[in-house]
Nucleic acid binder design. Structure first.
Lengths: 151, 151
DNA sequence: TAAGATTGATCATTCAATCTTC
DNA sequence: GAAGATTGAATGATCAATCTTA
C-alpha cells in the first residue's frame, strides 16, 4: 500500500472527526438536560415521524444505522417509556412495526425546538450559506460513493 | 425555544452525520480486515506516537475523547496485546503513563498506510483542494467555539 | 480536600444462534 | 431453505464510588 494523502486532506479529516465528536456530544447533553431524551430515542422518533408514524423494524434499523438486534432492544426500551408500541404486520406474519404513540409525538414536538436550536447555535451559525451548500455537496458525494455497510 | 434552522442548514447537518457514520464504518472495517487492528487501538497508537511515545492516562483520555475509566480499560486491553506498557510517573506518585512498545510502533507503521489509503479513497478523493480548506476552516471554527465536554 | 487513576455496577451495542413464517 | 425478528453471550463504554498521593 502506498500513501499519498496530503497534509491539507489529513487536516480536513481530523477537523471533521473532532467537530463530529464535539457536536454530537453537546447536542446529546442538551437534549438530555432540557428534555430528558436520549439522542437515540430522538432519532427513532424522527424516523417514525417522517415515515408517517410507523416503520418495520428492519427499515428502522437501516434508517437509524443500528443492527437489527440493536433496534429490537432500543424499541423495547422506548416501549417501556410509552413512546412507541409494537404491532404485528398483517400482511407478513414474520414482520413487526414500531408505531409512535401520542406520548411519542409529544416528546418529539417538545424535543425538536431544543435540538434545532442546538444545531443552529453549534453548527449552522458557524457556516455561510455557501459553506452549507458545499458541505451538503461534499458529504452527499462521499456517502453516495458506496462506503455503506456493504462496501 | 424558537426555531429558525433553515432547510439548507438542516440538509448540511444530516449529510454530515450520514457521511461520518459511513466513513468511520468503512475505515474501521478495512483496518480490522487488513491489519486486525481496531480503530480505538489505532487512535491510541497515533496519539502516543505524536506525543513522542508516552502520555499520561488523563492526557490520553482527552486526546482520544474517552472517559478516564474508558482509557484505563482500553490501555489494559492494549497491554494484553503487547502494544503498550504502563509505567509509573516518577514526579507524581498518583500518575501513570501509557508507553508505546516496539510492537506498538510496528503495528502503527503497518496500519498507517492502510488507514491513509482509506481516508484518501473514501474521503479526500471526493474533495477539491478548495473544499478541503473550507472543511478545515468550518470545522475548526465549530470545534473551537466551545462545544467541548465542558460546554 | 482535591486530583490522578482504577474498580464495580450498569447500560447499550454487536455477533451468532434461534424461532417463526414465507 | 431464506428472510424478519428476537435472544444469549460477550464487548466496550459510562457514571459513581473508591483508593492513593499531593
Amino acid at each position: 500500500v502506498t500513501v499519498r494523502l496530503s497534509n491539507d486532506d489529513l487536516a480536513a479529516w481530523r477537523s471533521f472527526l473532532d467537530a463530529h465528536a464535539s457536536l454530537v456530544g453537546v447536542l446529546e447533553r442538551e437534549l438530555l438536560a432540557e428534555r430528558d431524551l436520549p439522542l437515540a430515542f430522538y432519532d427513532v422518533l424522527v424516523q417514525l415521524h417522517e415515515a408517517g408514524g410507523r416503520l418495520r423494524m428492519s427499515e428502522l434499523a437501516r434508517s437509524v444505522l443500528l443492527s437489527r438486534s440493536g433496534v429490537t432492544r432500543l424499541v423495547r426500551r422506548m416501549v417501556d417509556f410509552g413512546l412507541v408500541v409494537r404491532e404485528a404486520c398483517p400482511s407478513d406474519g414474520r414482520g413487526a412495526f414500531a408505531v409512535m404513540t401520542p406520548a411519542g409525538r409529544s416528546a418529539l414536538r417538545r424535543a425538536w425546538p431544543v435540538h434545532a436550536r442546538g444545531i443552529q447555535r453549534h453548527f449552522a451559525d458557524h457556516l455561510s450559506a455557501d459553506e452549507a451548500r458545499t458541505l451538503t455537496d461534499v458529504f452527499t458525494r462521499i456517502t453516495g460513493a458506496g462506503n455503506g455497510p456493504g462496501a
